[in-house]
Design a protein around this nucleic acid. Sequence first.
DNA 1: GAGCAGATGATAATGATTTTCAATACTGCA
DNA 2: TGCAGTATTGAAAATCATTATCATCTGCTC
Lengths: 146, 146
Amino acid sequence: MTTSTDSDHLLDLLKASGARITKPRRVIVRILAEKGGQHPDAMDIFRRAVREDSRISLPTVYRTLKVLEEQGAIQRHAFSDGRSRYEPAAGEHHDHLIDMDTGDVIEFHSEKIEQLQEEIARELGYEIVHHRLELYGRKRKAGKRR
Amino acid sequence: MTTSTDSDHLLDLLKASGARITKPRRVIVRILAEKGGQHPDAMDIFRRAVREDSRISLPTVYRTLKVLEEQGAIQRHAFSDGRSRYEPAAGEHHDHLIDMDTGDVIEFHSEKIEQLQEEIARELGYEIVHHRLELYGRKRKAGKRR
DNA sequence: GAGCAGATGATAATGATTTTCAATACTGCA
DNA sequence: TGCAGTATTGAAAATCATTATCATCTGCTC
Ligand SMILES: [Mn+2]
Ligand SMILES: [Mn+2]
Ligand SMILES: [Zn+2]
Ligand SMILES: [Zn+2]
């Protein structure tokens, strides 16, 4: 169980930024550090948070997420489903493949693609600040000819 | 001036789907087929439309855009600025580089990247239905070392 | 433990997009 | 060309996710 550690890391980032460590923030940060069910949206987090402390409000969830994002502690993604989804910014950069049937989010990374992107931007006279690469697909059915 | 032709093409697609060719639709389609100022959002289109026919309403703009999208006549993009942006689905597939300072949208295409995406999805057991690749950057300043 | 700035919850506000619904205008047909 | 019947429209209200307001509360420093 690395839960405690990851959670503490987020709290440290918060503290370092001069923010106060409040009860709601403890709960929200703990949820973000949880292993299963990644890329939750604000409502997902809110629902889980309420289970731990029924007084927590949705605005506080949003406010905490915003602070964490500004601190670079978490990342916000806007997949094509309206809401924003969040994930701790721990690991290295990666992009996402979204299962259109289940909604599952699969992470991947291609150094080749990353480099090609840089190359393209350079040729166009630009410097990439950030990018977004999302693949939307469905599981390949068995019988693949060829 | 290919304007007339492009516009007519969109109208044909509409007609083919059994939709009625109304005055507002003519105006909106004409605007979408215009050459300059591409990737307009609904409000952009609405403002231009009102100039041609002050009776046109925003909901009608949205409704027409939706019909056109369902017909595959136009594509909707959700760049990271809240609103959706539209463009005729005429040409070949391409991705976008957004100038973070000016908001300019530059189109590009990399067959290599497209193939790498397919490869990655296949390895993960998926078939790509569609994808989204957006580069956000700023113009590279002169003095580039190296 | 007191004091105060920052944080919270309840509630209203936003902004983009969609829905409702009565009035209107395309279209195919007489 | 005239009409009926239905798709489409405009005005206004509703949605949805997210943010702002503001009075109250609470970490945190001394
Ligand atoms: Mn991820
Ligand atoms: Mn484009
Ligand atoms: Zn990437
Ligand atoms: Zn592409």
